[in-house]
Amino acid sequence: MIKSLIINPGSTSTKLGIFEDENLIKEETLRHSTEEISQYASITDQKDFRKNIILDFLKNENIDIKSFDVIVGRGGLLKPIPGGTYECTDALIADLQKGVQGQHASNLGGILAREIGDEIGVRSFIVDPVVVDELEPVARISGIPEIERVSIDHPLNQKAVARRYAKEHGKKYEDVNVIVVHMGGGTSCGVHKNGKMIDVFAALNGDGAFSPERTNGVPALALVDMCFSGKYTYEEMKKKIVGGGGFNAYLGTNDMRTVNKMCDEGDKKAQLVRDAFIYQICKNIGACATVLKGQVDTIILTGGIAHGKVITDAITERVGFIAPVTVYPGEDELLALAQGALRVLNGEEEAKKYE
């Protein structure tokens, strides 16, 4: 039995999971107030603060820190890398500290895992960080040479549910062709072929269907006109695209439960916007099916919005002719991180080295 401590830092919280093999023993969300976080000039400056909170929690729960066999952190904004489980090497930690693609709380995952792991003498890993990029060369061409399509989306959950589907059908992830649609605060639609995510409508980079708080694909020239209209600052335009777009912009909420309630109460605008969200998701799925030349084993719907049967049924009605639809609601990131470490420690795959 392998006992693991999973660390998933967010902007105002640190989620912890304690696993024995794949069995969740304890889960906790340690919340941090704005006042606490605002004391620190940078993300990395929060390291000792968050570490002490984690250690205090374990102590209060009478959990011996030395009882863990491995520490696993959420991966951060590293250089683009293939998917997999990565050892927390010096090079990886250095790039997390620098924030080579930006500063985000998830950068602390690997840093905390390495420090705690070193102190108790066990290995530390990150798994399938948001910068996983396995796009085929043809998928990178945007039409503007100065802009390359990249993959920054939801690889941890996308790959976890693809592996889950493969296992449930007696296969390996490398043996299936699936389309995975992650529907949460951001959306992404990924093409998984033989163990790699070879193309994606990315959640963060202005591509694909809009989401509860992101615009994603919009008419380019109209967007350029807005940017140069003089009405909006650079930061205001970024907020329109990420954070203030999508359902937030149309309906004033990023909570799909609220949107569904509005629809149930007969709000015609909410119904139209929700229908448009479903419509755009289905268009993305159809485009992804062409990448696989129609050879699709299943279409997987996942993320928090996949809890809504009205939405998953409507998507299934439109795309069920392409392939069977499988629904895995939610996103069990803690389990996905634990599974990544287990695959290495059980000898199913080798840990990758970040360079």
Rank of each mutant, 00 (worst) to 15 (best):
I65G: 01
I179M: 05
E213N: 08
A222E: 08
Y173H: 14
V327H: 07
K239W: 14
G252L: 14
G347F: 03
I315F: 10
V180A: 02
K59Q: 08
I53E: 05
P145W: 13
T34W: 10
E317K: 15
V273Y: 02
T253D: 08
Q339M: 13
L342D: 14
D48G: 05
K293V: 04
G109E: 01
S188E: 01
Q295C: 04
G10I: 11
M237K: 04
E119A: 14
E168F: 00
Y86H: 12
I285R: 14
I63E: 10
D225R: 15
G303N: 06
F210E: 00
L223K: 03
I126C: 15
V224C: 03
V131S: 08
L301G: 05
I311F: 04
A276W: 11
V72N: 04
D45Q: 13
Y40S: 11
C282W: 11
I141V: 14
K59Y: 11
G17P: 08
D153I: 04
A287R: 01
N23G: 00
L292F: 07
E136R: 14
A323L: 03
G84E: 03
I63F: 02
N177T: 01
L221G: 00
E349D: 00
V127I: 10
F321C: 05
T29H: 00
H154T: 08
E20H: 02
E27L: 10
T14E: 02
A220T: 15
F210K: 06
A139I: 04
A341T: 13
F277C: 04
F68H: 06
A105K: 10
S38N: 14
V310W: 04
T290I: 12
V296K: 12
K269M: 05
N107V: 03
T316E: 14
N216F: 08
L77V: 06
Q46V: 05
A113H: 01
P329D: 11
L345I: 15
Q295W: 10
I53T: 15
I37W: 03
D64P: 08
N107R: 06
P219H: 00
E174N: 03
Q103I: 01
S4R: 12
F321H: 07
D95V: 12
I2T: 09
I147D: 10
G286T: 12
L221I: 13
I2E: 14
E331C: 12
D255R: 14
E27W: 07
A209V: 04
V200E: 00
A41W: 02
K15F: 09
R214I: 01
K171D: 00
R257L: 00
A220N: 13
V150R: 15
P219V: 04
K269S: 10
E22P: 03
G10P: 15
T215R: 00
I116E: 12
A276L: 12
T215N: 06
D64R: 04
